[in-house]
């Protein structure tokens, strides 16, 4: 067991190293001189010279990489040039927001997606099935920002039930926090629910036509037990894998939804940083997200190892 974990850990370090090179290298491919972008409307030549010197922009790529990487190793991801805040502080500020949004969206997606998928499989070729399919198609084809704006107009402007946008920390006011997060979480969850519904439906259909389900029915088991206990459990495996992948994507930020609802999460942070050529923020956030991904993968591998005895041999 220990050997396995150590083996996996040994691959993590070179992976992170390559990831860091990739992040750094790709960013250099961005057109535009960061010094000019950062020097503001005035673009004073003296200021541009100073910014070049400060960020080592005149030095070769490998030297700049060294400056950055040696900082990262010491736990220093640098400062945001735009607002003079340490990148680690920015990440810590945004992380809880992103995690909460991703979790809420995922719960909504799982509840809607799996329920709709099961119903449409069980009631195949009925109005229930057609309805669920229409819902899935709608969820897949509705752009997030458009749905977001419609929800704002309905629930915030017309009905006045929910705040139009913004974020309140749950530690400050839990009720206000949930009120602010429910619409963006629904918008994000809705799109994922549609994907999950399609997968649940096809997996359920396959399982429902399998021999053991027929046997279970032949035994005279209650249909509800057959569906929920015997069929759904097996059908859920691919759905959970897919859900985990979608959750990973949500954690790296949902740019458009965050923009529309003014949720200060990772997506907005990174997009603003790219446009402002705030290199240390882009590098820091991407590296952090990549590290989280790799760590989660490692944990998943360990979990498989523990759960599946066959892997141990």
């Amino acid at each position: 067991m220990l050997k396995f974990v150590l083996q996996r850990l040994a691959t993590v370090i070179p992976t992170l190293f390559f990831v860091s090179i990739l992040i750094f290298g790709l960013q250099q491919l961005l057109p535009g001189d960061p010094a000019i972008a950062l020097a503001g409307e005035e673009r004073d030549p003296e200021t541009i010279r100073y910014l070049r010197e400060k960020f080592h922009l005149d030095e070769p790529l490998y030297v700049r990489y060294w400056y950055w990487a040696s900082g990262v190793v010491r736990g220093d991801l640098g400062d945001s040039v735009r607002i003079q805040k340490p990148v680690t502080e920015l990440i810590m500020e945004k992380l809880p927001v992103t995690i909460q949004l991703a979790t809420m969206a995922m719960i909504i997606a799982l509840v809607i997606g799996i329920t709709a998928g099961v119903i449409s499989a069980v009631k195949k070729d009925t109005w229930w099935d057609y309805g669920a399919n229409v819902f899935a198609l709608w969820g897949l084809s509705t752009p997030n920002f458009w749905l977001g704006i419609l929800l704002i107009l309905l629930f915030a402007v017309q009905l006045g039930w929910l705040p139009a946008s913004g974020y309140v920390s749950p530690f400050e006011d839990l009720k206000a926090n949930l009120a602010a997060m429910i619409m963006p979480a629904f918008v994000l969850g809705n799109a994922i629910a549609a994907v999950l519904m399609r997968h649940t439906r096809s997996a359920m259909l396959q399982v429902l036509s399998s021999d053991y389900v027929r046997t279970a029915r032949a035994k005279g088991l209650d249909e509800r037990v057959v569906v929920m206990k015997h069929a759904l459990r097996n059908a859920l495996i691919p759905v959970i894998t897919l859900g985990a992948l979608e959750f990973g994507t949500l954690l790296s930020g949902a740019v458009l939804t965050e923009q529309v609802f003014t949720i200060p999460g990772f997506g907005k942070l990174i997009v603003d940083a790219v446009f402002n050529r705030d290199y240390s923020v882009v590098q820091g956030v991407v590296l952090f997200t990549a590290t989280v991904y790799i760590t989660l993968n490692l944990l998943a591998d360990v979990a498989y190892f523990l759960v599946n005895p066959r892997l141990r041999h």
Partner: peptide
């Protein structure tokens, strides 16, 4: 001071009294 980039959302916040 709240930065809200989207003009429609900014207006929706004004209309909803936020």
């Amino acid at each position: 001071y709240q930065p809200i980039v989207d003009a429609t959302v900014r207006l929706a916040n004004l209309r909803s009294g936020q």
